[in-house]
Design a protein around this nucleic acid. Structure first.
Lengths: 115, 115
DNA sequence: ACCGTACTACGATGCCTATCGTACGAGCTG
DNA sequence: CAGCTCGTACGATAGGCATCGTAGTACGGT
Protein backbone atom coordinates (compact mmCIF):
# COMPACT_ATOMS: atom_id res chain seq x y z
CA UNK A 1 0.00 0.00 0.00
CA UNK A 2 1.01 3.61 -0.39
CA UNK A 3 1.05 5.30 2.96
CA UNK A 4 -0.50 4.23 6.23
CA UNK A 5 -3.74 6.00 6.95
CA UNK A 6 -4.22 8.28 9.89
CA UNK A 7 -5.26 6.11 12.80
CA UNK A 8 -8.51 6.53 14.63
CA UNK A 9 -6.55 7.08 17.81
CA UNK A 10 -6.90 10.77 18.28
CA UNK A 11 -4.80 13.05 20.38
CA UNK A 12 -6.14 16.10 22.21
CA UNK A 13 -4.78 19.40 20.96
CA UNK A 14 -5.51 22.81 22.42
CA UNK A 15 -7.44 25.16 20.17
CA UNK A 16 -5.79 28.40 19.16
CA UNK A 17 -7.83 30.21 21.79
CA UNK A 18 -6.49 27.86 24.44
CA UNK A 19 -2.80 28.33 23.71
CA UNK A 20 -1.18 30.31 26.50
CA UNK A 21 2.04 32.22 26.05
CA UNK A 22 3.25 31.08 29.45
CA UNK A 23 2.65 27.49 28.43
CA UNK A 24 4.58 27.91 25.22
CA UNK A 25 7.50 29.51 27.05
CA UNK A 26 7.49 26.83 29.69
CA UNK A 27 7.48 24.14 27.02
CA UNK A 28 10.45 25.72 25.28
CA UNK A 29 12.39 26.35 28.47
CA UNK A 30 13.48 22.72 28.57
CA UNK A 31 16.66 22.00 26.58
CA UNK A 32 15.35 18.71 25.26
CA UNK A 33 12.13 20.24 24.03
CA UNK A 34 13.84 23.25 22.55
CA UNK A 35 16.04 20.85 20.66
CA UNK A 36 13.05 18.96 19.34
CA UNK A 37 11.42 22.15 18.14
CA UNK A 38 14.61 23.27 16.44
CA UNK A 39 14.86 20.01 14.54
CA UNK A 40 11.22 20.21 13.55
CA UNK A 41 11.72 23.74 12.28
CA UNK A 42 14.80 22.70 10.35
CA UNK A 43 12.99 20.08 8.29
CA UNK A 44 9.80 22.16 8.00
CA UNK A 45 7.80 18.97 7.76
CA UNK A 46 6.81 16.04 9.90
CA UNK A 47 9.08 13.79 11.85
CA UNK A 48 8.23 10.66 13.79
CA UNK A 49 9.19 10.45 17.44
CA UNK A 50 11.83 7.87 16.63
CA UNK A 51 13.50 10.16 14.11
CA UNK A 52 14.95 12.00 17.07
CA UNK A 53 17.97 10.65 18.84
CA UNK A 54 17.63 12.15 22.27
CA UNK A 55 19.82 11.21 25.23
CA UNK A 56 16.82 10.10 27.26
CA UNK A 57 14.64 7.01 27.36
CA UNK A 58 11.56 6.57 25.22
CA UNK A 59 9.33 7.19 28.21
CA UNK A 60 10.87 10.59 28.72
CA UNK A 61 10.68 11.33 25.01
CA UNK A 62 6.97 10.59 25.05
CA UNK A 63 6.59 12.95 27.99
CA UNK A 64 8.35 15.80 26.19
CA UNK A 65 6.30 15.41 23.04
CA UNK A 66 3.14 15.47 25.07
CA UNK A 67 4.16 18.68 26.81
CA UNK A 68 4.86 20.25 23.43
CA UNK A 69 1.51 19.11 22.06
CA UNK A 70 -0.51 20.17 25.09
CA UNK A 71 1.10 23.59 25.10
CA UNK A 72 0.15 24.04 21.46
CA UNK A 73 3.63 24.08 19.99
CA UNK A 74 3.38 20.93 17.89
CA UNK A 75 0.67 18.89 16.25
CA UNK A 76 0.75 15.12 16.54
CA UNK A 77 -1.04 12.53 14.50
CA UNK A 78 -0.76 8.77 14.33
CA UNK A 79 0.15 7.29 10.98
CA UNK A 80 0.39 3.57 11.33
CA UNK A 81 2.54 2.78 14.32
CA UNK A 82 4.42 6.00 13.90
CA UNK A 83 3.39 9.25 15.52
CA UNK A 84 4.17 12.16 13.28
CA UNK A 85 5.08 15.54 14.73
CA UNK A 86 4.81 18.92 13.07
CA UNK A 87 5.25 22.48 14.27
CA UNK A 88 2.04 24.48 14.55
CA UNK A 89 3.74 27.30 12.76
CA UNK A 90 0.66 28.93 11.24
CA UNK A 91 -1.26 28.85 14.50
CA UNK A 92 1.62 30.29 16.47
CA UNK A 93 2.36 32.95 13.88
CA UNK A 94 -1.29 33.92 13.94
CA UNK A 95 -1.37 34.21 17.70
CA UNK A 96 2.08 35.63 18.33
CA UNK A 97 3.49 37.11 15.11
CA UNK A 98 7.24 36.92 14.92
CA UNK A 99 7.64 35.05 18.17
CA UNK A 100 8.48 31.65 16.78
CA UNK A 101 11.00 33.05 14.34
CA UNK A 102 12.62 35.14 17.05
CA UNK A 103 12.83 32.12 19.32
CA UNK A 104 14.32 29.90 16.65
CA UNK A 105 16.78 32.60 15.70
CA UNK A 106 17.74 33.04 19.34
CA UNK A 107 18.22 29.31 19.81
CA UNK A 108 20.32 29.16 16.67
CA UNK A 109 22.54 32.00 17.82
CA UNK A 110 23.06 30.41 21.19
CA UNK A 111 23.88 27.06 19.63
CA UNK A 112 26.32 28.67 17.22
CA UNK A 113 28.02 31.14 19.50
CA UNK A 114 27.89 30.30 23.17
CA UNK A 115 27.75 26.52 22.88
CA UNK B 1 20.50 65.57 49.64
CA UNK B 2 19.52 65.03 46.07
CA UNK B 3 19.10 61.35 45.43
CA UNK B 4 20.19 58.40 47.52
CA UNK B 5 23.46 56.94 46.36
CA UNK B 6 23.84 53.43 45.08
CA UNK B 7 24.42 51.24 48.08
CA UNK B 8 27.53 49.20 48.56
CA UNK B 9 25.37 46.10 48.74
CA UNK B 10 25.95 44.57 45.39
CA UNK B 11 23.89 42.01 43.58
CA UNK B 12 25.29 39.29 41.33
CA UNK B 13 24.24 39.56 37.70
CA UNK B 14 25.07 37.09 34.94
CA UNK B 15 27.31 38.40 32.20
CA UNK B 16 25.98 38.49 28.67
CA UNK B 17 27.89 35.32 27.90
CA UNK B 18 26.19 33.58 30.80
CA UNK B 19 22.62 34.36 29.81
CA UNK B 20 20.90 31.21 28.60
CA UNK B 21 17.87 31.27 26.38
CA UNK B 22 16.30 28.43 28.33
CA UNK B 23 16.78 30.41 31.52
CA UNK B 24 15.13 33.48 30.04
CA UNK B 25 12.19 31.45 28.79
CA UNK B 26 11.81 29.72 32.11
CA UNK B 27 11.87 33.05 33.91
CA UNK B 28 9.16 34.42 31.65
CA UNK B 29 7.00 31.31 31.81
CA UNK B 30 5.71 32.35 35.21
CA UNK B 31 2.66 34.64 35.05
CA UNK B 32 3.87 36.81 37.91
CA UNK B 33 7.26 37.35 36.36
CA UNK B 34 5.86 37.97 32.90
CA UNK B 35 3.65 40.60 34.45
CA UNK B 36 6.62 42.25 36.13
CA UNK B 37 8.53 42.35 32.88
CA UNK B 38 5.57 43.82 31.03
CA UNK B 39 5.26 46.61 33.56
CA UNK B 40 8.98 47.30 33.38
CA UNK B 41 8.81 47.48 29.61
CA UNK B 42 5.83 49.81 29.78
CA UNK B 43 7.63 52.45 31.80
CA UNK B 44 10.94 51.93 30.00
CA UNK B 45 12.77 52.99 33.12
CA UNK B 46 13.37 51.79 36.62
CA UNK B 47 10.81 50.72 39.16
CA UNK B 48 11.29 49.76 42.77
CA UNK B 49 10.03 46.42 43.94
CA UNK B 50 7.30 48.09 45.95
CA UNK B 51 5.98 49.88 42.87
CA UNK B 52 4.44 46.60 41.89
CA UNK B 53 1.22 45.49 43.44
CA UNK B 54 1.41 41.76 43.09
CA UNK B 55 -1.06 39.36 44.67
CA UNK B 56 1.68 37.59 46.59
CA UNK B 57 3.62 38.30 49.75
CA UNK B 58 6.85 40.28 49.84
CA UNK B 59 8.88 37.13 50.28
CA UNK B 60 7.52 35.72 47.07
CA UNK B 61 8.04 39.00 45.28
CA UNK B 62 11.69 39.00 46.30
CA UNK B 63 11.98 35.46 44.97
CA UNK B 64 10.55 36.40 41.56
CA UNK B 65 12.81 39.41 41.17
CA UNK B 66 15.79 37.29 41.98
CA UNK B 67 14.85 34.72 39.35
CA UNK B 68 14.51 37.49 36.79
CA UNK B 69 17.88 38.96 37.75
CA UNK B 70 19.71 35.64 37.81
CA UNK B 71 18.34 34.68 34.42
CA UNK B 72 19.60 37.97 33.00
CA UNK B 73 16.25 39.55 32.24
CA UNK B 74 16.47 42.48 34.64
CA UNK B 75 19.17 44.51 36.34
CA UNK B 76 18.82 45.38 40.01
CA UNK B 77 20.59 48.01 42.03
CA UNK B 78 20.05 49.33 45.53
CA UNK B 79 19.31 53.03 45.85
CA UNK B 80 18.79 53.84 49.48
CA UNK B 81 16.33 51.38 50.92
CA UNK B 82 14.73 50.90 47.55
CA UNK B 83 15.87 48.33 45.04
CA UNK B 84 15.48 49.60 41.53
CA UNK B 85 14.69 47.23 38.69
CA UNK B 86 15.29 47.75 34.99
CA UNK B 87 15.00 45.58 31.93
CA UNK B 88 18.31 44.51 30.38
CA UNK B 89 16.94 45.49 27.03
CA UNK B 90 20.23 46.25 25.30
CA UNK B 91 21.89 43.08 26.48
CA UNK B 92 18.94 40.94 25.45
CA UNK B 93 18.59 42.65 22.09
CA UNK B 94 22.27 42.07 21.49
CA UNK B 95 22.07 38.41 22.34
CA UNK B 96 18.69 37.59 20.85
CA UNK B 97 17.63 40.29 18.38
CA UNK B 98 13.90 40.77 18.19
CA UNK B 99 13.13 38.26 20.90
CA UNK B 100 12.19 40.64 23.67
CA UNK B 101 9.98 42.70 21.39
CA UNK B 102 8.28 39.59 20.06
CA UNK B 103 7.70 38.35 23.59
CA UNK B 104 6.29 41.65 24.80
CA UNK B 105 4.09 41.90 21.74
CA UNK B 106 2.87 38.36 22.30
CA UNK B 107 2.11 39.06 25.95
CA UNK B 108 0.27 42.21 24.97
CA UNK B 109 -1.84 40.42 22.42
CA UNK B 110 -2.74 37.72 24.89
CA UNK B 111 -3.65 40.27 27.55
CA UNK B 112 -5.77 42.21 25.09
CA UNK B 113 -7.49 39.41 23.27
CA UNK B 114 -7.81 36.13 25.08
CA UNK B 115 -7.71 37.44 28.64
C1' DA C 1 -1.48 -16.29 13.88
C1' DC C 2 2.74 -14.54 15.26
C1' DC C 3 6.35 -11.32 15.90
C1' DG C 4 8.63 -6.97 15.87
C1' DT C 5 8.36 -2.02 16.09
C1' DA C 6 6.47 2.30 17.87
C1' DC C 7 4.63 4.39 21.39
C1' DT C 8 1.89 4.62 26.00
C1' DA C 9 0.57 4.11 30.90
C1' DC C 10 1.76 3.81 35.48
C1' DG C 11 4.45 4.01 39.54
C1' DA C 12 8.69 5.53 41.78
C1' DT C 13 12.20 8.82 42.70
C1' DG C 14 14.58 12.88 43.46
C1' DC C 15 14.90 17.59 42.45
C1' DC C 16 13.04 22.15 41.69
C1' DT C 17 9.97 25.87 42.84
C1' DA C 18 6.02 28.95 44.13
C1' DT C 19 4.18 30.17 48.19
C1' DC C 20 3.93 31.54 52.97
C1' DG C 21 5.35 33.33 57.75
C1' DT C 22 8.58 35.04 60.83
C1' DA C 23 12.64 37.13 62.10
C1' DC C 24 16.18 40.14 60.67
C1' DG C 25 19.39 43.98 58.30
C1' DA C 26 19.95 48.41 55.88
C1' DG C 27 18.94 52.82 55.33
C1' DC C 28 16.04 57.13 55.83
C1' DT C 29 13.69 60.59 58.94
C1' DG C 30 12.11 62.78 62.90
C1' DC D 1 18.59 57.28 69.15
C1' DA D 2 13.94 55.44 67.89
C1' DG D 3 11.01 54.16 64.70
C1' DC D 4 9.60 53.33 60.08
C1' DT D 5 9.89 51.35 55.41
C1' DC D 6 11.99 48.37 52.12
C1' DG D 7 13.72 44.36 51.23
C1' DT D 8 16.35 39.67 52.72
C1' DA D 9 17.15 35.17 54.84
C1' DC D 10 15.61 30.98 56.38
C1' DG D 11 12.59 27.17 57.17
C1' DA D 12 8.43 24.80 55.98
C1' DT D 13 5.12 23.06 52.76
C1' DA D 14 2.95 21.51 48.95
C1' DG D 15 2.85 20.74 44.27
C1' DG D 16 5.15 20.16 39.79
C1' DC D 17 8.26 17.78 36.81
C1' DA D 18 12.27 15.35 34.38
C1' DT D 19 13.79 11.00 34.60
C1' DC D 20 13.67 6.00 34.74
C1' DG D 21 11.94 1.04 34.34
C1' DT D 22 8.51 -2.20 33.44
C1' DA D 23 4.51 -3.76 31.51
C1' DG D 24 1.19 -3.17 28.06
C1' DT D 25 -1.38 -1.59 23.52
C1' DA D 26 -1.71 -0.65 18.53
C1' DC D 27 -0.35 -1.53 14.08
C1' DG D 28 2.04 -3.60 10.09
C1' DG D 29 4.50 -7.42 7.98
C1' DT D 30 5.58 -12.34 7.43
Amino acid sequence: MTSPAVSSRDLPHPGCDEIRLEGVLHALSDPMRLRIVRELAAVSGELSCSDFELPVTKSTTTHHFRVLRESGVIRQVYRGTAKMNGLRRDDLDGLFPGLLDALLDAAGRQAAGGG
